[in-house]
Design a protein around this nucleic acid. Structure first.
Length: 271
DNA sequence: AGTGCGGCCTGTCCGC
DNA sequence: TGCGGACAGGCCGCAC
């Protein structure tokens, strides 16, 4: 269940091992991911050199001379850098064998993840073309969000989890950001004042950037990590805390379902 | 167009 | 101890 901070931490972890290295071999053990792994990938990526490791939303973009490998970790995916002699285990579906006898290995038990290939501009790829702004850029701000919120009746939690509005806000950080902003998750989006939407924008930025910062502390262990970034030690204020006391007011944290997703909030701090 | 929801997938946990 | 069912959730795609 990597959210954006975990994906960014992964990007930073793998980048130094991949940059300017040649892809010696592509191993696809199971092509049955979210979408079938294209056979073109191995043909066209083998022998090419990595020139960039970028991120767009929760997609990792490994740019090479001949095209781009687009990786999504889905719910249960993780990437590790390992000695290429390391035996693959169950759920290790995909390898990029690179120079220096290293391998970038994708493990994904639930296979919600994806490995795509494109020879063109990856940002124009079908999966990426329609995405909204990155949350940590100025493109995501109270002006644009206020316009998009106008007249909308859907719960604000669903709104901020919509990729057209802003990318990278998953179920956990959606609850956390709404707590920080003091907004009840079921509030109809169009009924929230511009000022409060501005608070929400800032809350999303701060919760995500703090999580990325915390991820940095685990980064040094990346190559020998167990591949489970987890949810860093960042203290979650509401997520998973149903029935416990709110750190802010002492009230009881509640859980409800919004769009078939569990949602946690403090009824006293969030209105 | 906006909204709501089913489906994909497997490991883990719970109750019987 | 074994087993079935619920749950976790990102994101697509369908139906209204």
């Amino acid at each position: 269940m990597p959210e954006l901070p975990e994906v960014e931490t992964t990007r930073r972890g793998i980048e130094p091992h991949l940059l300017d290295r040649k892809i010696k071999r592509v191993i696809v053990r199971d092509r049955r991911l979210r979408w079938p792994v294209s056979s073109r990938l191995a043909k066209e990526a083998t022998g090419s050199r990595v020139h960039s490791v970028r991120r767009r939303a929760k997609y990792l973009l490994i740019g090479t001379d001949t095209g781009t490998i687009i990786i999504h970790l889905g719910m249960s995916g993780s990437l590790r850098i390992l000695p290429s002699s390391t035996p693959a285990e169950k759920h290790d579906h995909f390898d990029l064998v690179i120079e220096n006898n290293l391998v970038l290995r994708l493990r994904d038990p639930r296979r919600f993840g994806a490995v795509l290939w494109t020879g063109k501009d990856p940002l124009k790829h079908k999966r990426l073309a329609g995405l909204g702004p990155e949350p940590l850029t100025d493109q995501f701000n109270s002006n644009t969000i206020h316009k998009q919120a106008s007249g909308r009746i859907l719960p604000v939690k669903t709104f901020i989890m919509t990729a057209k509005i802003v990318v990278g806000v998953g179920n956990i950080y959606a609850s956390e950001a709404l707590f920080r902003a003091g907004i009840h998750p079921e509030t109809a989006t169009g009924k929230i004042s511009k000022q409060r939407l501005g608070r929400l924008v800032m809350a999303i930025k701060s919760v995500l950037s703090q999580a990325i910062e915390q991820g940095g502390t685990t980064l040094k262990d990346f190559t020998r990590s167990d591949g489970k970034p987890g949810y860093f030690s960042q203290s979650l204020n509401v997520y998973g805390r149903e029935g416990k006391n709110c750190y802010q007011c002492g009230g009881i944290i509640r859980k409800l379902m919004i769009g078939q997703r569990s949602t946690f909030y403090c009824p006293r701090c969030q209105r």
